[in-house]
Design a protein around this nucleic acid. Structure first.
Lengths: 211, 211
DNA sequence: CACAGGAAGTGACTAAATCACTTATTGAAT
DNA sequence: ATTCAATAAGTGATTTAGTCACTTCCTGTG
């Protein structure tokens, strides 16, 4: 029904009772269906107000909200993965970027100085914007999903261990490489940037966890 | 509760009615909770039998089951993404692989000749095993998730357009590179392998969609 | 020893309410 | 005319009590 009506994030759905009538089932049954959609962030409930379409409708990859963070290993595992995956994405961005991508990228680079928005507006997160510049939506979504793994830790890291000025400088250099279409430089700079973050975290965790 | 009891895929949960008693809510409420877990493949219902823990418990990344495939663009987008992401993963595998990884990889390479198992046993899928050899679980999960995007199409492709013997030969060459710890060769061979598949599909789709 | 039949357990669903929360409207005081 | 608190309507959240449908396993019969 969401598809057919072409509903976008923010749009309201019909009320539970109305949906129950329309599909000729009872409200508990409708609620079960809606709960499934809620689990993948396709819709969101607002008690007393209504149910609304959420960002998940156009997100193919997502982080399992039901896997506890304690099961997963160290935060370093995540950064290791990013160090492998993001440099080639940056290279693709350098090769494919349009002028609009470039302005969006510059915008998000400036935003790195005040990272509080990044959690709500993913497109303002530098690494998401970078992946977006590759022109491949799936790459963007992959990076976006990775950044939501251990989201709590990542916010903690950004607020405590990261040197924002250095971050910003790193980002600007990556933007330059992307602007110039220099894929190798974009990849190398992205790798260095992430390795630096990894090292900063590894040192605070203590050498015994550094692998 | 699943965490606390350390339940693994295949284990049964208590019945709805029993859970309702234990959490002091009614069965419809329990069902809503279970439906959310079902949506991310943490549990699975078997009518008349019970509810069982499923593979999603240890899967952090997953494909949104509620996003229609029609919304997403061409299958080529997916292959483009894989061409960017998987070669560096192969390189990491070459650098980090243990001897056990190597045997698992060889096993899955042989399995490429009879790909029907790959859908149920992801660890037998060559590209998943390759990512697993990197030693980074998150990388493995990322590749695993990507392979489930447009799963229907991917199965179709494997059954109709792929030259199994050539696939197998490609895989064996990648295994050799990983065995020898040759990261550059592993990456290059993986890229060529995926590019070949992309070309094969692009030609069947007709030139107008080939970008 | 095989197997049909039945009982018990389980998920799936219904029906009719009630409670809790939000929002827009209304009407009185300013 | 404007402001703002009370109110009413709409919505999600949950309950209670029960029925139907499906599986599984056990038991008694041939």
């Amino acid at each position: 029904m969401i598809e057919a009506a072409g509903l976008e994030p923010g749009d309201a759905l019909a009320s539970s009772r109305e949906l129950a009538k329309r599909f000729e089932v009872t409200t508990p049954t409708i609620r079960e269906a809606l709960r499934r959609l809620e689990a993948t962030d396709v819709i969101r409930f607002r008690h007393g107000s209504g149910t609304y379409v959420s960002g998940g409708v156009n997100r193919r990859l997502l982080v399992n909200p039901h896997v506890s963070e304690s099961r997963s290993e160290s935060v370093l595992e995540l950064l290791d993965a990013r160090i492998v995956l993001e440099p080639p994405v940056a290279a693709a961005a350098a090769a494919q970027r349009t002028d609009e991508d470039l302005t969006a990228l510059t915008l998000s680079a400036d935003n790195s100085l005040k990272p509080q928005y990044a959690d709500e507006r993913p497109e303002l997160h530098f690494h998401v914007a970078l992946a977006g510049a590759s022109g491949n939506l799936l790459l963007r979504e992959t990076v976006e999903a990775l950044l939501q793994v251990r989201a709590r830790d990542q916010i903690e890291i950004r607020h405590r261990y990261t040197d924002r000025d250095r971050d910003h400088a790193d980002h600007l250099r990556i933007v330059e490489a992307v602007r110039d279409g220099d894929a190798d430089a974009a990849a190398a700079l992205t790798r260095e940037h992430l390795v630096a973050i990894r090292e900063a975290i590894a040192s605070t965790l203590g050498p015994e966890q550094a692998r």
